[in-house]
Simulated assay, not measured.
Amino acid sequence: MKILLVGEYSRLHNSLKEGLTKLNHDVTLIGSGDDFKNYPIDIDISPSLFTKSFLFNLSKVVHRLTNISFIELENAYRFYKILPKLKHYDIVQLINENSLKTHPKLEIWLLKKLFKQNGKVFLLSCGTDYISVKYAYDNKFKYSILTPLQNDPRLKKQFRFILMYLNKHYKKLHLFLYKNTKGVIASDLDYHLPLKHNPKYLGLIPNPINTNKIQYLENNFDGKIKIFHGINRMNYIKKGNKFFDEALNIIKKKYPDEVEIIITENIPYNEYIKIYNSCHILLDQVYAYDQGYNALEAMAKGKVVFTGAEQEWLDYYKLEEDTVAINALPDSNKIAEKIEWLILNPNMIKNISRNARSFIEKEHNYVNIANTYLKTWKNK
């Protein structure tokens, strides 16, 4: 089959492409590389004009005064230019409800053209979208990416890029996509739970991980346990990074000679994975029920990852607590207690490390996942 994957977050579509290619399908990935992360793509439609310093600053001023985004307009233009070549694909899959990263009115106009010249279209619930944000906004999770805002309404400005999915333009885009696609696929439990009873929902397909490309790294200790905390400053609040920072301060004071703490901020994906290779423990995110892509890749390498690993996730995969990953709760003291437990029981690091790799190989194998996608697409 000829398959077009539109958009990229956290390397999901790259790994899916690798699985589909292994199964002899012709796959094209179009997107922006997700900003500074710079993921590989076949057709690059990332903005280049209005990201330059002077024009970027000008576009920010114009956006603030008029609510017109030159970057969104450039995104739309760059996709429009390549659109005539995006024809005769059997399957088109969108990474989420704003895969073109332009204004919803323009997105609908462009997608209508894309859909008209191709076969079946599917939508991923991966990252924020109308249904997952509404579910969180209505307090249906015990905690979510909106919990910091619900605890402190003064943070509203920092959550504008999440709350925008609830405005009338994005809701209209959401309704358009649910009407004009064959169905919606969730990439993990955080998107599965809000979709469970939706008639367009086709089920959860776990994130594909290419373990052929990810080497398992044996956890050897040279006297210090290394803890890695990689920060994406834009997502600092919604990922709950402050709880990790506070927990690390507790650990540094209590175990200054037993641990080495490595912290990075806003670095490209390739650099990021090189830096965390030497760590034993990786701090990923707090406000989640399941693991995102970053956590899964780290688990494949044998890292003990503090991430979403809620009871719903344990039940879904039939796992015991603290055997594959550590559930990071929005509580600095509890996170510090779990880190301390690992420091005092380094054999648990080795056990969890091996279990994590086995779990990824069993549940997230990129070829098996690609096959699941193929079956889901063919059945609609």
Rank of each mutant, 00 (worst) to 15 (best):
71 I>M: 11
34 D>Y: 15
24 N>A: 10
169 H>C: 09
103 H>P: 04
183 G>S: 10
78 R>L: 12
11 R>S: 15
151 N>L: 06
370 A>V: 12
162 I>D: 01
369 I>K: 10
91 I>R: 00
253 K>R: 12
89 Y>T: 00
51 T>R: 13
360 I>Y: 13
329 L>P: 01
126 C>A: 10
38 N>F: 05
222 D>A: 12
238 K>A: 11
128 T>H: 14
218 E>N: 10
368 N>I: 05
238 K>E: 14
196 K>A: 13
190 D>G: 05
304 V>P: 08
120 K>D: 12
336 A>C: 03
40 P>Y: 03
180 N>G: 11
335 I>E: 09
246 E>L: 03
125 S>A: 14
317 Y>L: 02
314 L>H: 03
174 H>G: 01
90 D>V: 00
332 S>Y: 07
308 G>Q: 04
92 V>H: 02
194 P>K: 05
24 N>R: 13
94 L>G: 11
166 L>Q: 09
348 M>Q: 15
30 I>W: 09
181 T>S: 06
302 G>Q: 05
129 D>I: 00
7 G>T: 07
189 L>C: 07
286 V>S: 05
202 L>V: 01
230 G>S: 13
172 K>R: 15
171 K>V: 05
92 V>L: 13
257 D>P: 00
188 D>G: 14
157 K>N: 07
178 Y>K: 06
200 K>G: 00
203 G>N: 05
1 M>E: 01
37 K>W: 14
83 L>W: 01
243 F>C: 05
246 E>D: 12
105 K>H: 08
137 Y>H: 13
134 K>T: 03
142 K>Y: 00
330 P>T: 08
94 L>P: 11
203 G>M: 06
30 I>G: 06
367 V>A: 11
106 L>G: 03
282 L>T: 06
303 K>G: 08
267 I>V: 15
267 I>D: 11
71 I>A: 14
353 S>L: 09
138 D>H: 04
19 G>N: 07
344 L>G: 09
9 Y>L: 15
191 Y>N: 10
272 Y>M: 12
111 L>P: 06
183 G>Y: 09
136 A>C: 03
83 L>C: 04
197 H>Q: 08
353 S>V: 09
332 S>M: 06
371 N>D: 13
28 T>R: 01
24 N>Y: 02
7 G>L: 12
330 P>N: 06
45 I>C: 07
45 I>K: 02
255 Y>D: 04
165 Y>A: 07
275 I>R: 14
309 A>C: 10
271 E>Q: 12
341 W>A: 09
262 I>M: 12
72 E>M: 14
275 I>E: 15
317 Y>E: 02
104 P>E: 05
113 K>E: 04
227 I>P: 05
332 S>R: 11
135 Y>E: 02
40 P>A: 05
315 D>W: 00
169 H>T: 12
368 N>A: 09
162 I>K: 10
337 E>Q: 15
108 I>R: 09
300 A>E: 01
204 L>Q: 10
376 T>C: 15
170 Y>D: 07
106 L>T: 04
155 L>K: 13
12 L>M: 14
117 Q>I: 08
22 K>E: 10
261 I>S: 11
133 V>P: 04
171 K>N: 04
7 G>D: 11
249 N>W: 02
81 K>F: 02
347 N>V: 04
26 D>A: 00
359 F>C: 04
91 I>L: 00
260 E>Y: 03
87 K>M: 01
209 I>N: 08
24 N>E: 13
23 L>F: 01
298 A>Q: 02
173 L>C: 07
299 M>K: 07
165 Y>I: 08
4 L>E: 05
205 I>L: 14
117 Q>W: 05
